[in-house]
């Protein structure tokens, strides 16, 4: 009798179990194929960077160099001292400017969202409305005039030193976009969802705004901060349009990685140096991957310690 009772549910389970298993197999097969295809370009890139020049000409369809044709020559060519190793400058420029951009964005968003949510002052709501409206305006409208402003202020300041010029140009790389509305509103929405009683009780305990901000709000906001960090990091690292405009005519050592690598697609001569192009690309990818590996572990710790539930 008992077995009979347990028989029935067993049957229904196994039916959906079978469907699930079928689906899992289908999904496994599809995803496996997709993953192989996805990895292809990257494998090609890495493999080609080790191919000797001779192999590049004679074995173009191989993902990996043929036997005996492995070489580090391409890496050496741009890493060695006499090629003035521009890649390091590019990576350096990209890294510090992106990190600064991200840091400023997060700080500004935290501060401004806090002010908009937890402080009261006249015109607060109107300002938020204005921001929502302005979000619809695409940034492309401002590119040409911003370029004109950039040049005009440079004229006014009459910067003569190299360091000054560098600082000025990177000011214009880092700052635009720090006040991105989307990110700030994201933060604001998160703050709006924090239960007011936490803040109110802290206030009634006599905590200053600053204390509330640092001790309560910021730790809670970890996940949104992560989100904004991730949104802005790749946006800034990858930006092509605006840096291209303001770097034209400047020393190559000042470029960012994304602009520097366009040399390989722009000029046919550089593009013909396949091995070097691939090696440089692989090398340029490494820091991003490393940065993400590092921040990932910190994020898991951070999230676990604040106890934010799913």
């Amino acid at each position: 009798m008992l077995t009979r009772l347990t028989d029935k549910p067993k049957k229904t389970l196994s039916k959906s179990e079978r469907t699930i298993r079928k689906e899992k197999t289908v999904s496994f097969v599809v995803l496996f194929i997709v993953t192989i295809l996805w990895m292809l370009p990257l494998i090609y890139m890495v493999g080609t960077s080790f191919k000797s020049d001779y192999d590049l000409q004679t074995n173009p369809s191989g993902l990996f160099p043929s036997a005996g044709q492995w070489t580090l020559a391409h890496y050496k060519s741009f890493l060695s001292a006499d090629s003035d190793a521009k890649i390091f400058y590019w990576l350096g420029n990209s890294l510090w400017s992106t990190l600064l951009h991200v840091g400023l964005t997060v700080l500004l968003d935290l501060l401004t969202a806090y002010v908009l949510v937890f402080l009261n002052f006249k015109g607060k709501e109107k300002f938020v409305k204005l921001l929502y409206l302005w979000m619809a305006v695409p940034g492309v409208i401002g590119t040409a005039p911003m370029f004109a402003i950039f040049a005009a202020i440079r004229n006014g300041l009459e910067i003569s030193s190299d360091a000054g010029s560098y600082a000025y140009i990177f000011f214009w790389i880092v700052m635009p976009g720090v006040s991105g509305i989307f990110n700030m509103l994201l933060m604001r929405n998160f703050f709006l969802s924090i239960p007011r009683d936490i803040v109110d009780s802290a206030r009634s305990d006599g905590a200053s705004n600053f204390k509330i901000f640092t001790k309560i709000i910021v730790p809670l906001a970890r996940s949104t901060i992560m989100l904004i960090v991730l949104f802005t990091f790749t946006g800034s690292w990858n930006s092509l349009n605006w840096p291209q405009l303001i770097f034209s005519g400047e020393a190559q050592k000042w470029w960012t990685v994304t602009i520097g690598l366009t040399k390989f697609t722009d000029s046919q001569a550089a593009a013909a140096a396949t091995g070097v192009a691939m090696a440089t690309s692989v090398f340029a990818m490494l820091p991003i991957i490393i940065v993400f590996l590092f921040t990932q572990s910190k994020m898991i710790d951070g999230l676990a310690s604040t106890g934010i539930k799913a």
Partner: peptide
């Protein structure tokens, strides 16, 4: 984010597509 963090590989961040942020904030 919580989902993303469960990834162990290098791919655990979330970004906007094609620099959509470029539209709203000049990058």
């Amino acid at each position: 984010v919580e989902w993303g963090l469960s990834l162990k590989g290098p791919a655990q961040d979330i970004q906007s597509v094609g620099g959509a942020n470029n539209v709203n904030s000049i990058n």
